[in-house]
Design a protein around this nucleic acid. Structure first.
Length: 648
DNA sequence: ATAGGGTTAG
């Protein structure tokens, strides 16, 4: 029977159903029937307990023997909702219900909608809502769940609005889904309004709503999330993980790691599970804390979580971002072939790309396509940046040109940024600019930023000025763009313009970002600012660095004083070349590790050319492998050479 | 009936 053949109920019937729906929005007493006759279940119950899947065939055959009653069908629809792949049977039963005139019962309609919703048939679920004269919160919750799983965030929020408009109260089943939607679309006003509704209804202490609220709190608001977490009357592993993941995803890596430790050692009953591990690993990636990452990896292994593909993917990314490409590859190889989804491949391609291994990134991409996994937007961002770091210009362009036609992936601003970088690095600035002019979508700051960086490398002030002016409008608060243009002016001896930009920065109260490098020694992260003397070992570090130029000059080093002018950050320009933060970190590393140990340094900005050159010599005369991760990529220094081949 | 998870340029 088709849905449209459903007849509208008589007026009297409608009133009865309305009364029923109102009654049923409160908890249902187990044996109360709203029908004039006693429930058939009381007379002769066809299923004494919850029906099981294997009972269904017999049960369905016997249904017609009983007088029509919603209670007869509700448990069956609940069972079907929990059983994937049972939609066909569900449809038949729905038709049966309609034939018997029960389709307007509020609770039954909600259960039927829940079945359609959780199998992804949003169309029929929505039709049910439209045909229910007085929909209940239960029905809306079912639809909201379905839409958040299979539909769009916009569709979900529309339902939520409609629910409020009808005067229905959202509850602890409603809010978790709605909060996730708010986070997905990133609408701050909407998120705040939903948040305050939770508070008004006192639901922030609910285990489910509370976890969602904590998780979807925004960066600037993490204090509020901490307060919510502290105020939870009881916490389970989900609440803890929500808080850890909130820190982790907002770049508060230290706090994420500290909370993870607190949870493990605080004598809590809660035990981490694979979701917790997958949430805390990105914090190790972020702070490049390889030892911590390895520790967590061992722990995950002991608990048996390291065979979970989601954990394995997080491990691939962690090892790659902590500088160990070999271990990243090893973790990828351990992922079951059937579990290698697009996210797993993206992690691998990104790993190769960030280490400047363009050829391997390309071959990973080809393997992915061969194995039948479809690339997405992120895949191409990773692939194109891999081509760019390795100077694979034409190959990168070929991939870019077939993105939409061959792989049906839409071009985004990030992709243009990669291609502009690809062309720009190779010195093809005119083509890069032309590419931007022909874009079908608005060029975001990343696109102009890529052009500006390329102009700096290739000393093209003319195009650089155009890019910088765009950026000053798009990102007025970003100090880096101002600094870059100012450095270019300095290079050309245009001191008047340099002064103007400095005045502008001061005028707008824009603070320059400080350069910072860090190195993990014995599991402890040591951070250094440029010219920083606050480290306990500062005296030793500076004595070492004073001696350094003499030693490396003997090996052929000539300081690249050009970078005093060109350097990416103004404050470093003012700072003696020998005191750059990465040099401090490397000096400390050399002093506090035994000969032969690999040094891994991370920097929050781009490395300067002089440091790049000096580190090549350091790697040779001290016979050390030194791995530096700057904002863009990795540099592996060994025996006087860098893996980037000086193309960066 | 519900919550927490992995991949993204410069």
């Amino acid at each position: 029977m088709k849905f449209r053949k459903t007849k509208a109920p008589s007026l009297a019937n409608q009133n009865r159903i309305y009364a029923a729906s109102r009654h049923r929005s409160s908890p249902r007493p187990p044996t109360t029937s709203l029908h004039p006759s006693p429930s058939p279940l009381l007379l002769s119950n066809p299923y004494p307990s919850k029906p099981k899947l294997q009972d269904l065939p017999t049960l369905l055959k016997s249904l017609h023997q009983f007088p029509p009653h919603p209670d007869l069908y509700i448990p069956i629809f609940q069972l079907l909702t929990r059983t994937p792949g049972s939609l066909r049977l569900g449809r038949q039963l729905h038709a049966h219900v309609t034939l018997r005139g029960l389709q307007y019962d509020a609770v039954l309609a909600a259960r039927i909608a829940a079945m359609y919703s959780s199998s992804g048939d949003l169309r029929v679920a929505s039709l049910l809502l439209r045909h229910t004269p007085h929909p209940s919160s239960l029905l809306f919750n079912a639809l909201i769940r379905g839409h958040s799983l299979y539909g769009t965030p916009e569709g979900t929020l529309k339902l939520f609005d409609e629910m409020l408009y009808l005067g229905l109260l959202p509850d602890h089943f409603t809010f978790p889904f709605v909060l996730k939607c708010c986070a997905d679309i990133g609408s701050v006003p909407f998120g705040q309004s939903v948040h305050s509704q939770c508070l008004r209804r006192g639901l922030e202490k609910d285990l489910y709503v509370g976890s969602s609220l904590i998780r979807y709190m925004k960066v600037g608001n993490f204090k509020a999330a901490e307060e919510l977490f502290a105020a939870l009357p009881s916490r389970n592993i989900v609440s803890w993980t929500a808080m850890i993941s909130g820190y982790s995803q907002n770049g508060l890596a230290d706090r994420a790691l500290a909370l993870f430790e607190e949870m493990r050692q605080g004598g809590n009953d809660v035990k981490p599970n694979w979701v917790t591990i997958a949430s805390v690993l990105p914090a190790c990636s972020h702070s490049a804390a390889l030892k911590r990452g390895e520790q967590i990896h061992r722990y995950a292994g002991a608990m048996g979580f390291d065979s979970h593909p989601v954990v394995q993917i997080a491990l691939v990314a962690m090892y790659a971002k902590c500088g160990s490409l070999v271990k990243a590859r090893h973790c990828f190889d351990r992922i079951n072939k059937k579990e290698r989804d697009v996210i797993a491949w993206n992690a691998l391609i990104t790993a190769y790309a960030s280490h400047g291994r363009g050829v391997e990134a390309v071959s990973a991409f080809e393997d992915m396509v061969t194995s039948g996994v479809r690339p997405n937007e992120i895949t191409f961002t990773a692939l194109l940046s891999g081509c760019s770091h390795s100077g694979l210009v034409d190959q990168g362009l070929r991939y870019f040109n077939c993105m939409r036609m061959v792989h049906s992936v839409e071009l985004r601003s990030e992709h243009y940024a990669c291609v502009v970088d690809l062309l720009g690095r190779a010195g093809r600035l005119g083509e890069a600019k032309e590419m931007i002019d022909q874009m079908e979508i608005d060029a975001g700051p990343s696109v102009w930023g890529a052009l500006l960086s390329s102009c700096r490398i290739h000393h093209n002030l003319e195009i650089g000025e155009i890019a910088a002016k765009k950026l000053f409008v798009l990102e007025p608060e970003n100090s880096g763009n101002h600094v870059l243009l100012s450095n270019m002016y300095a290079e050309f001896g245009r001191w008047e313009e340099v002064k103007k930009i400095r005045a502008l920065l001061k005028d707008r109260g824009i603070r320059k970002s400080l350069s910072c490098s860090w190195i993990e020694i014995n599991g402890k992260v040591n951070a250094f600012l440029c010219g920083d003397k606050s480290h306990p070992q500062a005296a030793g570090i500076y004595i070492f660095l004073e001696d350094l130029p003499k030693k490396i000059k003997a090996a052929g080093y000539v300081p690249d004083t050009n970078f005093v002018l060109h350097d990416v950050s103004e404050e470093e320009k003012e700072c003696n070349l020998t005191m750059h933060s990465e040099k401090l970190a490397i000096a400390f590393g050399l002093l506090s590790t035994s000969p032969g140990a690999v040094l891994r340094v991370t920097k929050n900005l781009r490395m300067c050319g002089d440091c790049h050159l000096a580190i090549k010599f350091i790697s040779k005369i001290y016979d050390r492998e030194i791995i530096v991760r700057d904002v863009n990529r990795f540099h592996h220094f060994r025996d006087g050479l860098c893996s980037c081949g000086d193309y960066w």
